[in-house]
């Protein structure tokens, strides 16, 4: 039973890693305009949260809803 739960957690986190990396590379700037041009360190900072909460972010990404549209991108890394 314990092993099954651990396996499920492992699969969940593995899926989280894959989806998070895809989101950080292809989705984040479109989903949240405040992240446009943000550097690698910022992306690494939010990566752990993405791995744990990836279903929420995946839902946001697929829905196409955007936030912080009043912010124009730039390089703040």
């Amino acid at each position: 039973m314990s092993e099954t739960i651990l396996l499920a957690v492992g699969i969940y986190c593995l899926a989280g890693i894959v989806i998070s990396l895809l989101f950080l590379v292809f989705g984040i700037a479109r989903a949240d305009h405040a992240a446009k041009g943000a550097g690698l360190v910022f992306r690494l900072t939010i990566l752990p949260g993405l791995i744990f909460l990836w279903p929420i972010i995946l839902g946001r990404w697929l829905s196409g809803r955007q936030i912080n549209q009043d912010i124009h991108g730039g390089d703040n890394s």
Binding site: A34, A35, G37, A38, F42, N68, N76
Partner: peptide, 8 residues
């Protein structure tokens, strides 16, 4: 009005 993200 928000601001652009920084790492820390």
């Amino acid at each position: 009005m928000g601001h652009q993200y920084q790492a820390i």
